[in-house]
Amino acid sequence: MLLIAATVAADTVLTLLHAPAALLLGPLVMAIGFGVAGATLRPPGPLRLTSSTLIGCLVATALGPALGPDLLGHLPTFLLIAVSTLAMSLGLGWLLARLGWFEGATAVWGLSPGGAASMIALAQEMGADARTVALMQYFRVLLVAAAAIGLAHVAAPGMHAGPGKAWLGPVHLSGLAATALLGLVGAGLSRVLKFPAGIFLIPGLSGAVLMRLGWLHPEVPPILGAMAYAVVGWTIGLSFTPATLAHSARALPRIIASTLILIALCGLSGLVIGLTCGVDPLTGYLSTSPGGVDSILIIAASTPVDLPFILSAQVVRVILVLIAGPWAAGQVARWTQAKEEP
């Protein structure tokens, strides 16, 4: 109850200040405070699942009207973004391990732009420092979101902070039914296909296509959207525990520095993408952001950017990371360990 009350207060203040992505930033900041203070609560699995599907439906409602066939012409660019992001992450991890910033292959797994949980599990199997990898993964998600919010504030100061409608505005039962259907299909297919990111990507993509065809019109009441944003923020923020921070306290400056270097490299890549593809710099940056897809999509959906371009780039990156990421990170990690052996 204290976390909910603190989140509502933070959301209200940030919304009044017209802060970008206020409905994500508020719960994220409050949850970090609670996590560092020793709170052991975590959003339950069903609540995280429901929130992810709602975010997918929100993406669908924002993407559907703007969806067009011209995105296929950018497919080589999206592949280049995905490959370059993965290569920069693994290359930087290998370099930092060789420079002695981290022991063994910890840096490789910590900077890999895949799902945090899967990267931590694989790192543990490979004998890396799982706690440091966890902190690097969570800091990557946190700092990527913070950098995106900050850049959005500079690049689009007039953006709206949230869903942008009356909290309890009129909704149609058919729209709610369409949202529920998309959510159930997304959750079911993501489980069957063992595709965790599909929980929000499948409803987002399929819902957008169905909206474009006029076959489906999902609706997400703003109050539900705000709740979904809160759960995402809590999930990230509560990951910062005293035990994890204490274990990696001495390495914390290097963890933050390595994450900022990765963000800077991807930012430069985004600038090049923006210049070559004719999109604004914020769109270029959000399309190359290394991870935290759900938070990136929340920020993109509340900013005046090219959402179809960003979503397409992030989808291609997620697919590539899921297919080749664990294998590539494992190969680089083994190479790193082999180089360290006398």
Rank of each mutant, 00 (worst) to 15 (best):
A19F: 15
P20D: 06
L23C: 13
G26M: 08
G26I: 09
L28I: 05
V36K: 09
L41I: 15
P43H: 04
P46A: 04
R48V: 14
T53D: 04
L54V: 07
L75P: 13
L90N: 08
R98C: 02
W109R: 11
S118K: 02
S118I: 01
M119D: 04
A121V: 14
E125Y: 09
M126D: 15
M126K: 12
G127H: 07
G127E: 06
L135E: 05
M136W: 00
R140C: 07
L142T: 07
L142C: 01
L142W: 00
L143C: 08
I149H: 11
A152K: 03
P163A: 10
G164Y: 00
L176K: 11
G186F: 04
L189C: 13
L189S: 13
S190R: 03
G204H: 11
R212G: 09
Y229C: 15
Y229F: 15
V231A: 04
W234I: 04
H247N: 09
R250A: 12
A264L: 07
A264N: 07
V272T: 08
L275Q: 12
L275R: 11
C277K: 02
L282I: 12
Y285C: 02
S289Y: 01
G291K: 02
L297H: 03
S302W: 03
V305A: 14
V315Y: 06
V315N: 08
V321Q: 00
L322G: 07
P326R: 03
W327C: 13
W335L: 08
